[in-house]
């Protein structure tokens, strides 16, 4: 551990740049799927445990399209559209029925969905680890100490544009306003003539499309296997729990924060703790929130 600290801060401080960059790339993907989760959680009170599987499904769709040699700029919208309609179907078949139920119902129902999706993906694409290599150039910096694959930069820019688009959509468009109104007070929204069922439907499908986009980035940056969804779900939950609902800037900050935290824990304490890091972060945040809530004699609900 001491060696690692020395390495990072004394011998080769330049590699911090690489670790920070990796953390940012990781954080960008987390932030996207976490934002989708915050949306469905905040608007319709659904805790979607299948979030990570939507991400992986997006990744596999992107794999399927990449076999036709499409460019990522085409794959991304295609995957998002398909995932949007997939979300619509899932909403109509099951989510609609669990919306008014207590919170555990949605957790378990979506867990069931997660099992189902994992296995269907396993049956369709097989359990092999899959990789998409679009063969984009890799840039060097600082004497080759830092390498930046351009595909990661492209993904980062696309993710940024996407979240900017979503923010604007939420702020400016009629539907976006209706979503926010429903999140604040569904009854009042209904009274004012908003069809909340349609809003829920749209929100869930939008989440699915966002996850699909995150999946495209996962597939071009890391590797795919049908059973990896759970890690993305856990991280999304960690981020949303840490950042709170309906607060996009906080979710994005938390996404990057957790990405960086994970990378630095890995670099300093050891990679063995890289998976434990985000969940420990989640627990720490929860404990701190409890302490601050306790002053007002309240609990974290």
């Amino acid at each position: 551990m001491l060696d690692n600290i020395q390495l990072l801060f004394v011998w080769a401080p330049i590699i911090n740049v690489q670790i920070i960059l990796e953390g940012i790339f990781l954080g960008a993907v987390f932030a996207l799927s976490a934002y989708g989760l915050a949306l469905v959680w905040g608007v319709m009170n659904i805790k979607n445990l299948a979030q990570g599987d939507f991400v992986i499904m997006g990744g596999y769709l992107s794999l399927a399209f990449s076999q036709y040699n499409l460019s990522i700029f085409l794959i991304l919208p295609l995957v998002m559209i398909i995932m949007f309609f997939y979300g619509l179907i899932v909403y109509r078949l099951m989510i609609r029925r669990v919306i008014d139920q207590d919170m555990f119902t949605s957790l378990l129902a979506t867990f069931g969905l997660s099992l189902l999706m994992q296995q269907v993906m396993n049956l369709i694409w097989g359990p092999e680890v899959q990789i998409i290599d679009l063969d984009f150039p890799v840039y060097d910096a600082f004497d080759g100490f830092v390498t930046i694959p351009s595909i990661k930069i492209i993904s980062l820019i696309l993710a940024g544009m996407l979240s900017l688009g979503i923010v604007l959509f939420m702020k400016k468009s009629r539907t976006g306003q209706a979503i926010r109104a429903t999140a604040q007070d569904p009854r009042a929204a209904r009274v004012l003539g908003i069809d909340t069922d349609k809003i829920y439907e749209f929100t869930f499908s939008l989440n699915s499309a966002i996850c699909g986009a995150a999946g495209v980035f996962v597939s071009v940056i890391w590797v795919l296997q049908p059973f990896y969804g759970i890690t993305y779900s856990v991280r999304s939950f960690a981020i949303v729990t840490a950042a709170g609902l309906g607060n996009l800037p906080a979710v994005i900050t938390a996404g990057f924060g957790i990405g960086l935290f994970e990378k630095y824990v890995g670099a300093i304490i050891g990679t063995a703790y890289e998976v434990a890091a985000p969940v420990s972060m989640l627990l720490i945040v929860l404990v701190f929130r409890q302490i601050s809530m306790k002053k007002n004699r309240q609990a974290v609900k």
């Binding site: 805790k47 919170m103 856990v234 998976v275 969940v279 409890q290 809530m293 974290v300 609900k301």
Partner: peptide, 20 residues
């Protein structure tokens, strides 16, 4: 001090952290 979903997710986190 956690209620509802936070307790559920927190305890899930506990299990994952313990395993790792």
């Amino acid at each position: 001090g956690l209620r509802g979903p936070y307790f559920a997710i927190g305890s899930l986190g506990l299990a994952i952290a313990a395993a790792e």
